[in-house]
Computed example of a mutant assay.
Amino acid sequence: MRIYRIDHVGQVAPDPEPQVGLLERLFGFERVRSWESEADGTRGVRLEVPGSWGQAWEVVAPYGDGSPLQAYLDDHGGRAGLHHVGAEVTDLAAVRTELEARGIKAVDGASGRWLEASLSPPEHGPGVLFRMRGPGGLGLCGDDAAVPAESGPRDGPALGIVGLDHVCQAFPDRDELARWYEGLAGFVPVWRTPLDEHPDMADLVMNVPGSAICWEIIMPRGEDSFIERFWDRNGAAAHHVTFEVADWDRAMAACAHHGTPTFGENEGATDGAAWRDAFIHPKHTGGVLVQLFWEERPGVWVRSDKIPASWT
């Protein structure tokens, strides 16, 4: 199977409107389509992410009796959070065959238009949920019947996001999961941090062919790693989503205006160019840990000073 494009990140919420309002005001996302689909048991909104080429953000919520999303929320204490990553594949039937051969259960979407599966080695339990569609269809959430929608009023400055950079997943062994994604879906390893660079973690980043979005894998190192604690609670789930901002001071001013604190700020310089990053806690974003970064010159934030990824 080959994933050739990431279409969107899907976030689930009991009610989409408050979450969409937050994404419009603080993140500067633009509402473009909305839908209600009783057949899929969903209602939701699709939003454009500034600077992202073909990648969007979708907020989905239960709709109608017996909605699978309501069951999902019930299983997660009613909490909003990241639900799935929407992707396009070249051959949906081939995807099903490949997943079954690897012992991964694939669930049909409405009318067989898409498949839903956890794309992680099954012996490690559920990982990040992917929704995949083949050529010729647009529906992944009931949104094939979406109608145009306009964004609501803005209140103050937004973060100044210029792109969705990557999705990060936690896993005990970065090389094991990277090989899995490379063999299963054609992800390409790009770079890794040296094993001893950070006391509590090491990471590896992969490109998704056809997408501007990358895939980061972080694994724990040392005693009492934050990744180890996350793994104990959540398994191979998505850890965070990262956005680039155009101006760091502007982004921090927007957070202050909207009463949104940040934490874990870092700053440094690579090849003489400055960079900064920080996180926003999930309780301020609707259940998703968000990382923001700014770089003075393209490619200097955690890239040009890292060693290339290699299996040798």
Score class of each variant (00 low, 15 high):
225 S>R: 00
231 W>M: 15
245 V>H: 04
175 D>T: 12
192 R>I: 07
235 G>H: 04
254 A>R: 09
221 R>V: 00
223 E>F: 12
220 P>N: 02
214 C>Q: 13
224 D>R: 10
188 V>T: 13
186 G>H: 03
247 D>F: 03
238 A>N: 09
250 R>Y: 07
197 E>S: 09
166 H>M: 03
232 D>F: 02
177 L>T: 15
175 D>V: 12
227 I>A: 08
225 S>W: 03
163 G>F: 03
219 M>T: 09
208 V>A: 13
257 H>Y: 15
213 I>F: 01
192 R>P: 11
257 H>C: 06
244 E>Y: 11
209 P>I: 07
187 F>L: 15
217 I>G: 02
195 L>R: 12
241 V>E: 06
230 F>K: 00
233 R>I: 15
190 V>H: 10
161 I>W: 04
200 D>A: 08
229 R>A: 14
169 Q>Y: 05
224 D>V: 13
189 P>F: 09
166 H>P: 00
221 R>S: 00
176 E>Q: 13
183 G>N: 12
218 I>D: 02
250 R>S: 10
193 T>S: 14
208 V>R: 08
255 C>T: 07
184 L>V: 11
218 I>M: 03
239 H>C: 02
250 R>Q: 10
233 R>G: 10
187 F>T: 11
245 V>K: 01
216 E>P: 05
218 I>V: 15
205 V>L: 14
251 A>R: 12
234 N>M: 09
202 A>I: 05
180 W>Q: 08
225 S>P: 06
191 W>K: 13
177 L>M: 15
204 L>M: 13
166 H>W: 02
212 A>D: 14
223 E>G: 01
204 L>E: 05
173 D>V: 11
161 I>Y: 04
177 L>E: 12
251 A>W: 01
204 L>P: 01
249 D>T: 07
205 V>C: 08
210 G>A: 03
224 D>K: 09
182 E>N: 13
162 V>N: 09
195 L>A: 13
244 E>K: 10
178 A>R: 14
210 G>P: 03
253 A>N: 10
225 S>K: 03
195 L>P: 09
162 V>P: 05
195 L>T: 14
164 L>G: 07
199 P>E: 00
255 C>L: 15
175 D>E: 14
228 E>K: 08
172 P>R: 06
172 P>A: 00
176 E>I: 15
184 L>K: 06
240 H>M: 12
255 C>Q: 05
228 E>T: 15
164 L>F: 14
210 G>M: 04
249 D>R: 04
257 H>A: 12
178 A>I: 08
253 A>L: 08
171 F>A: 13
186 G>C: 02
241 V>C: 08
250 R>D: 02
248 W>F: 03
221 R>I: 00
181 Y>C: 14
217 I>L: 14
194 P>R: 10
186 G>V: 03
202 A>H: 05
160 G>H: 01
219 M>G: 06
165 D>W: 04
252 M>E: 11
